[in-house]
């Protein structure tokens, strides 16, 4: 940053007027995002608690529903998301070291991986419509699918798929919001808005992205790996 003209540096420090210095601003940003993640934990927590109750009540139905999901797709998506967390972490690192090119590349890589995840998810959703196992919209399982679901009771299987769509759907919405934030970072990053002194937005979005990733780490076993079929 030493080659940047002094007046530019003053304008582009990114210090908001309400803060005394960048350190105070950065600490506030980090506390803010951690608090926000706590609210997210409570948000998903309510859903996970409800899931836990019904899985305990209707284990057979949940097991049957789980066996219809394609574990290969779920596992592949897990790898993709973990990869995106790596590239996200590398983006933050690049921002800290002031490597603008690497920052933008890693951010775009993260977006691509996020896009792959959403694509696979969309394919899986479509599969559910093909198999007529979308509760409330298209529920008429037949053939092999029916054979999987019948032992646990078709009504309770609907509950399982309700959770499947509610949980993965909310997760996907968080992914989409995350992609929007990444895009914003790419645009700002290309303009050189982030410096080794001011990179809090990258880190904040990074924490959010890792959180969304962790939610999936819980969703994958809870939805795909029930009942030890392997």
């Amino acid at each position: 940053m030493s080659d940047a003209p002094a007046h530019l540096e003053a304008e582009h420090t990114g210090l908001a007027h309400q803060f005394e210095d960048l350190e105070q601003q950065q600490e506030s940003d980090f506390l803010g995002i951690w608090l926000f993640l706590v609210t997210e934990i409570m948000f998903f927590g309510g859903l996970f608690a409800a899931y836990a109750i019904y899985r305990w009540l209707y284990f057979a139905a949940f097991e049957g529903g789980s066996h219809i999901l394609d574990i290969r797709l779920g596992a592949a998506n897990t790898v993709v998301l973990l990869g995106s967390s790596l590239t996200m972490a590398l983006s933050v690192r690049s921002a800290q070291t002031g490597n603008r090119r690497a920052l933008v590349y890693f951010l775009i890589a993260t977006m691509i991986l996020g896009g792959v995840f959403l694509g696979v998810k969309a394919y899986e959703y479509n599969q559910k419509f093909v198999e007529h196992i979308v509760p409330g919209l298209d529920w008429a399982p037949e053939g092999e699918v029916l054979a999987h679901l019948a032992p646990g009771g078709l009504q309770h299987a609907q509950l399982y798929f309700f959770f499947y769509f509610a949980m993965t759907g909310l997760h996907a919405i968080h992914m989409v919001i995350g992609m929007g934030l990444l895009l914003w970072l790419v645009i700002r990053g290309r303009k050189g808005a982030f410096t080794p002194h001011y990179f809090a937005p990258v880190e904040v979005v990074g924490l959010y992205w890792h959180f969304v990733d962790i939610v999936w780490i819980f969703l994958f076993p809870l939805l795909y790996l029930i009942g030890g079929r392997y």
Partner: peptide
Amino acid sequence: PVLAITIFLLALEHLFHVGIFSPALGG
């Protein structure tokens, strides 16, 4: 956030007539 997710599930149930709070499906 807990109210938010609860109300969200309620709205889903009211919209799609399927959900986790209604005894019709064992909810």
